[in-house]
Structures are given as structure tokens and as C-alpha cells.
């Protein structure tokens, strides 16, 4: 292990880790929005919306994220979508994780006992009120942990944007592996930073989950 080299290059890795964190936060936010919309569409009363939601989820879960990213970044200009690599990364990966999150959210909502809605309706709440005030709060409690799994996967998933040359952790590691021929050192350095990011996020999710848990 070449400690001297690690001490020399680690500031670049720290900078890259900030980009990885930015990408993670933005893609997760976009994913949550897309996921919520798609989950709502899939459970809608309107057939067309249900079909659109199902197609979105099926297509984005049925093809590799890397292909989706390439299609958007390299193929986008052909259909008039001009994005820089970072934007394409956020939008591509956000849409991808959104499809997975949609299923997580739908699963949580479906697993809330149907009797809850019935009881709320009996008490005079409208369908929308019953959903907003009774079903959703219970479902949100259930979805924290599985969404945490999605988020954990997404943090690692941000590495894909290295393939479209966004300078984040994996790209930086790859570049330094190429220039120093020290793959183990560079893997170690990037790996430690990824594990720190994932561990901190994981602790945050566990905290939220415990807070939301019923006593």
C-alpha cells in the first residue's frame, strides 16, 4: 500500500466525493418525485394513467440504467434534447431510480389494511381525504426502510455517470488507476469514501425509521 501516493491524491477524491453526494441527493429527489407520480398513476382510476405508469415502471426496470443514460446523453441531441453530462446523469439516473421507488411506494400503500379506508369513509371522509389523512401517513411509515434500500443502491448507482465522463468518485478512481497503475490504492481510497457516504445515509434512514415507528 503506497501511503505517500494516497496522501498526495486524496484531496481530488474528496472533491469527487462531493460530486457523488450532489448526484446522489439530486437523483434521489428526482426519483422520489417520479416515483410518487408513477405510483399515483398506477393506482389511478383512469385506465390511461394506469397504463402510462405501468409502461414507465416496466421499461425503466426492464433495461439497464447504463443504456438509459447513453440513450439520453448521446441520443438526446438527435431528438432535440441537449444536456451536459451532469444534467443527463441526474435526469437519467433519477428517472431510473424513480421506477424502482414507484414500486416501493405502491407496495407500501397497498399493504395498508383496506379496513382503514373503509373506516375513514364511514366516518364521513371523502376518498381523497381518507387517502391523505389515513392511508398515506401509515404507508409512509412503512416505506421508509425499503426506500432506504433504493437510496443505498442509488448512491452506488451514481458511479454509472463515470461512463459519460462526469468527474465523480469512480471516474476519478479510474483516471488515477490509469495514470498511477496503483489500482488497489485507488480502489481503497474511493471505496472508503463510498462506504462513509453509505454508512452515514444508512444511519440517517435507520434514525428516521425508528422515529416513525409506532411505540
Amino acid at each position: 500500500m503506497d501511503i505517500e501516493l494516497i496522501l498526495k491524491v486524496y484531496p481530488y477524491f474528496l472533491e469527487a466525493a462531493v460530486v457523488t453526494i450532489e448526484l446522489s441527493v439530486l437523483t434521489v429527489l428526482l426519483g422520489l418525485i417520479c416515483g410518487a407520480l408513477a405510483a399515483a398513476a398506477r393506482m389511478s382510476r383512469f385506465r390511461l394513467l394506469r397504463i402510462i405508469g405501468a409502461v414507465y415502471v416496466s421499461v425503466f426496470r426492464g433495461t439497464p440504467a447504463l443504456i438509459q443514460l447513453f440513450l439520453l446523453y448521446f441520443g438526446g441531441p438527435q431528438i432535440g434534447i441537449q444536456l451536459d453530462a451532469f444534467e443527463a446523469g441526474v435526469i437519467g439516473l433519477g428517472l431510473n431510480i424513480g421506477a424502482y421507488m414507484a414500486e416501493t411506494m405502491r407496495g407500501a400503500i397497498v399493504s395498508v389494511d383496506g379496513g382503514q379506508t373503509e373506516a375513514a369513509r364511514t366516518l364521513g371522509l371523502s376518498r381523497a381525504q381518507a387517502f391523505r389523512k389515513v392511508t398515506l401517513p401509515q404507508a409512509m411509515r412503512l416505506m421508509i426502510r425499503p426506500l432506504g434500500v433504493n437510496i443505498n443502491a442509488q448512491i452506488k448507482g451514481t458511479a454509472l455517470v463515470a461512463a459519460i465522463s462526469v468527474v465523480e468518485l469512480t471516474y476519478t478512481a479510474q483516471r488515477y488507476i490509469g495514470s498511477t497503475y496503483k489500482p488497489f490504492e485507488m480502489f481503497f481510497l474511493a471505496g472508503v469514501l463510498y462506504i462513509i457516504i453509505i454508512t452515514v445515509t444508512g444511519k440517517g434512514i435507520t434514525y428516521l425509521d425508528r422515529k416513525a415507528r409506532l411505540p
Binding site: A159, Q174, A190, Y194
Partner: peptide, 11 residues
């Protein structure tokens, strides 16, 4: 489990 597959492939 804590690092991306892409990074592992490079390694």
C-alpha cells in the same frame, strides 16, 4: 456491498 460494481470491475 458498499462500493459500486463499476469501481469493482475497474479494480
Amino acid at each position: 456491498m458498499g462500493t459500486p460494481l463499476l469501481l469493482q470491475l475497474f479494480l
